[in-house]
Nucleic acid binder design. Structure first.
Length: 156
DNA sequence: TAGGCCATCTGGTCCT
DNA sequence: AGGACCAGATGGCCTA
């Protein structure tokens, strides 16, 4: 586990230059008056920073939860965020195509006017086609997903 | 050492 | 008005 940098006020204190500008993050013109930021303004910023940290931590927790439910073969190395999202997308596609195959386009136990899942799937396919995407046929998703998790293992 | 990935700060914008 | 969300900027760590 990578050692975490200092947090919160200590970190901000260390990162602030003489003018009160953060060394990281967007640059902006310094405070207009002498003495730099007002104390209340600094306090609001610190609180805002803390909320943003918490928000990002929640987002990372969600990424971790997603990593744990999508099958992959890189147990020795954590999936990056982009890998996680890409694998999840294709895993969903492969599951969808599997369900459609097993149910012949009709959800088990569903009586009614029509197979909504299948209709939805067709719409998605049509939308992708309209955009010029080259999506494989439903039966190809599983193979594509399998290929992808192996390519991630190879680190390509 | 370069590039990838990440955490954090920050200011702007959107939403409640 | 205040908080949530977003995206740009920056620096640190890790790996090939």
């Amino acid at each position: 586990m990578r050692p975490k940098p200092q947090r919160s006020q200590d970190l901000l204190f260390n990162r602030l230059g003489h003018s009160g500008q953060a060394l990281g993050g967007r640059r902006r013109p310094g405070p207009s008056g002498p003495g730099g930021r007002r104390e209340s303004s600094v306090q609001r910023r610190l609180e805002s920073n803390e909320r943003e940290r918490q928000r990002m931590h929640k987002l990372n927790n969600a990424f971790q939860a997603l990593r744990e439910v999508i099958p992959h073969v890189r147990a020795d190395k954590k999936l990056s965020k982009i890998e996680t999202l890409t694998l999840a997308k294709n895993y969903i596609k492969s599951l969808t195509s599997t369900i459609l195959t097993m149910s012949s386009g009709r959800l088990p136990g569903l009586d009614g006017p029509g197979p909504k899942l299948y209709q939805h799937y067709q719409q998605q396919q049509a939308a992708g086609g309209a955009l010029g995407a080259t999506e494989p046929q439903p039966e190809g998703h599983l193979q594509r997903y399998s290929t992808q998790i192996h390519s991630f293992r190879e680190g390509s």
